[in-house]
């Protein structure tokens, strides 16, 4: 019979080894897969994306801007550009780099996959907002056009990504850029947020933390060089101008505003009730639709009825039905507390 002590040590060693190799994300296998992905194809696709991005923003892409965007040396950038030209994806007009039709179509395919994947992460997974862009940066090089199409169909052919960027169609159509920078908005003007820049990370994380998302309604209160004071979906908010500059809005004529409020559904004590004012734009995709299907809409009166054993979830009375929601969902439903205190 095998000596038990030796058997245990051996087994521990073997399982440790297996964990080191196979653990998703950190294991040797995952690392190896990552390095293997850093291929020439990725460089080409990233270069095309950069060129397209500049074209869309009506800027002039150069050899230097490319080297900067891809963080590669000038020599590498030069070799890459030669390669792109020989593939007829690019024409050089002096310093000025211009995409060919093939090049633009290719770039749009990659962008479509990137934005679809961000949309998928936002709508159907609980992956943190600040990670969407980075995961999509990897996935855009892995998806086949067929997979991208199947994903689009499943999600109901979304037309915008969660940052408000349009998702090119399978045939490469994309609308012209719209909106103005938030900092251009005058006091008392109303606008809808249509886009949020997801880079740099720090600025984006700040916007997410302050609950600014595409789709929210903005009422400008005051703006000066130190502070942008505004009301976002009925909540007063202050942003640094440098952060506000990363938000694009479309002015709207709207006289009625979302009323001001402080509470969310999660603040209701048992027996207390409130009227829904808005659902946070951080609640997206099927989750948002499900909430609305259940009758959680601006104007709906909701009463907190029962709390789960661990303090979560809470069952609410919503339009005649008892429906349990978890705390993190209840926090996304903004309400106006009803005055009278119910038993």
């Amino acid at each position: 019979m095998v000596d038990p002590a030796r058997a245990l040590i051996l087994a521990a060693a073997v399982s440790l080894l297996l964990v080191l190799v196979f653990w998703p994300g950190i294991g040797v296998l995952a690392r190896w897969q990552r390095t293997r992905l850093n291929t020439r194809r990725i460089l080409i696709e990233d270069a095309l994306k950069h060129l397209y991005d500049y074209e869309y923003q009506q800027l002039t892409a150069t050899h230097r801007s490319l080297a900067g965007a891809l963080s590669i040396s000038g020599d590498e950038a030069a070799r890459l550009l030669e390669g792109l030209q020989s593939l007829e994806l690019l024409r050089a007009q002096g310093e000025h780099l211009v995409l060919t039709d093939d090049g633009r179509a290719y770039a749009l395919r990659v962008i479509r996959m990137h934005r679809l994947w961000e949309r998928y992460l936002a709508d159907e997974t609980g992956v943190n907002e600040t990670e969407w862009h980075h995961q999509a940066e990897v996935k855009e090089h892995q998806l086949t056009p067929e997979q991208a199409d199947a994903l689009a169909v499943r999600m109901g052919n979304p037309s915008y990504d969660p940052h408000g960027d349009p998702i090119p169609t399978a045939t490469g159509e994309i609308p012209v850029k719209r909106g103005i920078a938030l900092t251009k908005l005058q006091p008392y003007e109303h606008a809808e947020v249509v886009h949020i820049e997801d880079e740099p990370d720090v600025v984006y994380a700040q916007l997410v933390a302050q609950d600014i998302h595409p789709g929210i309604h903005i009422r400008m209160i005051s703006i000066d060089k130190d502070k942008v004071q505004l009301e976002a979906d009925g909540i007063e908010n202050a942003l640094a101008p440098i952060i506000a500059a990363n938000v694009t809005v479309v002015p709207v004529d709207r006289t009625e505003t979302i009323e001001r409020h402080e509470a969310t559904l999660a603040d209701l004590p048992l027996g207390g009730s409130g009227r829904v004012v808005a659902i946070s734009r951080a609640c997206r995709g099927p989750q948002r639709r499900r909430m609305m299907d259940l009758g959680i809409l601006p104007g709906t009166t909701i009463t907190a009825e029962m709390r789960g054993i661990g303090g979560d979830p809470t069952a609410y009375m919503i339009r005649g039905a008892t429906i349990a929601l978890r705390m993190n969902q209840a926090k996304m439903i903004h309400i106006q507390r009803n005055e009278e205190k119910a038993g």
Partner: peptide
């Protein structure tokens, strides 16, 4: 935490009469 990373995406539960 590994193969199926993520947080719960949707949760709603009707407690019928």
């Amino acid at each position: 935490r590994t193969m199926l990373k993520g947080e719960v995406s949707t949760f709603s539960l009707e407690l019928p009469p």
